Simulated assay, not measured.
Amino acid sequence: MTLALVSAAAFGTSGPFGKALFEGGWSPAAAVTARIGIAALVLAIPTALELRGRWHLLRKNLGVVLIYGMTGVAGCQLFYFVAVDHLSVGVALLLEYLSPVLLVGYAWATTRRRPSPLTIAGAGCALAGLALVLNVFGDVSLNLIGVAFGLAAAFCSAAYFVVASHSHDESLPPLALAGAGMAAGVLPLLAVGALGLLPMDASTEDVPFAGHQVSFLVPLLGIAVLAAAFAYVTGVLSARMLGSRLASFLALSEVLFAVLFAWWFLGELPLPIQLSGGALIIIGVLLVRASDDTAAA
């Protein structure tokens, strides 16, 4: 659980880092592509060392790597950014974070075992808390295209947790899965940029961050090394220890960390309704953790 929270906190830093790049003239697609590409480079040598003498594991798990890269790395972010073009940020995030509920339904369908009342209650509390943290009730605008892409991001997020938590005797080690998945995930992002489907604007000018003008490398390396490479490796480790369902509910704490980091780095104070939502998310996670069917996920 500690690893899952550390991973969520690392993912939560992407907001302040990303906002600094956006204000410096970077487009979201360019920032995401650079983020994943640099993370792939950072993890390349550790991945090679991890697989030394065991390269057959990569061949046997090539399909898993491709699914991981296409969904959890590239799909989530691409579909989310398309959703944001048609919806408010809060609603788009709320749709993406439906993945824990999708995983509860997936476990129910595959095991034919109905979720316990605690799991259902925990899912309800967590989603209600998420809606409050994202403050989606203030200005909600729905667009069918945006909703469709938001739900696609949710399915990609659910697939990420399923793949990350899956383990057997010849599974890729967590670090190798994250590293190879980064390499697989950056390819569709580069293709999207080459085809001109999304703007790929970047700049080497200094950017505003934490009240100062800093080199663009500061937020770029932050979003790539901390919010991608480190976050994904710890995410895979925690998912294998906890299972996909509990790991996905703990991942909801990313929005809490994002709010706290926005407060710390950007001076954006959380609203009382957001703090109340955070308490509901914590209650929801505790209920899921206490349920008797968590191990079955």
Rank of each mutant, 00 (worst) to 15 (best):
A29I: 07
S27V: 02
L94C: 05
E23W: 14
A20Y: 14
V84G: 03
Y80M: 08
L95P: 00
G37K: 15
L51M: 09
A131S: 09
A20N: 15
T111R: 11
A153P: 03
N61K: 13
V133T: 08
M70W: 13
A148M: 07
V133Y: 03
A153Q: 01
F22W: 11
T119D: 03
K19W: 07
A34C: 14
L94F: 07
L78Q: 00
Y106T: 14
N61L: 10
G146W: 05
V101A: 13
R112C: 00
G72W: 15
V147K: 04
I67N: 03
L58A: 13
E96F: 10
C156A: 09
P28K: 09
L98T: 13
P28A: 06
G72S: 13
S116M: 05
H56T: 14
C76M: 07
T33Q: 08
G53H: 10
L127D: 04
L58W: 10
L94G: 07
G25K: 06
T111V: 07
L21G: 15
L130I: 06
D85H: 13
L43M: 02
R113K: 11
R113W: 03
V42M: 13
G63H: 06
V32S: 06
P46L: 02
C125M: 14
L66Y: 13
P100A: 06
A123H: 06
A109Y: 08
D139R: 02
A121Y: 10
N143H: 15
S27F: 02
L51S: 03
W26I: 06
G138W: 02
V65K: 00
L49F: 09
A29Q: 11
G146Y: 13
L49V: 04
G72F: 12
V84F: 04
A30C: 15
A20T: 09
L43R: 01
L98Y: 06
V133F: 02
A74I: 11
A109S: 08
A148W: 06
D85L: 09
H86Y: 13
A131G: 12
A152C: 05
G105K: 06
G24S: 01
T119F: 04
F81K: 12
G124M: 13
A20E: 14
A153V: 05
D85P: 08
G124F: 12
L134S: 15
L57P: 09
P28C: 05
V89P: 02
L93E: 06
A92Q: 14
W108S: 01
L151H: 00
V82R: 10
T71M: 15
L51G: 01
G146S: 12
R35Y: 07
P115I: 04
L130W: 03
L78P: 01
H56K: 11
R54D: 04
A34H: 11
L103P: 00
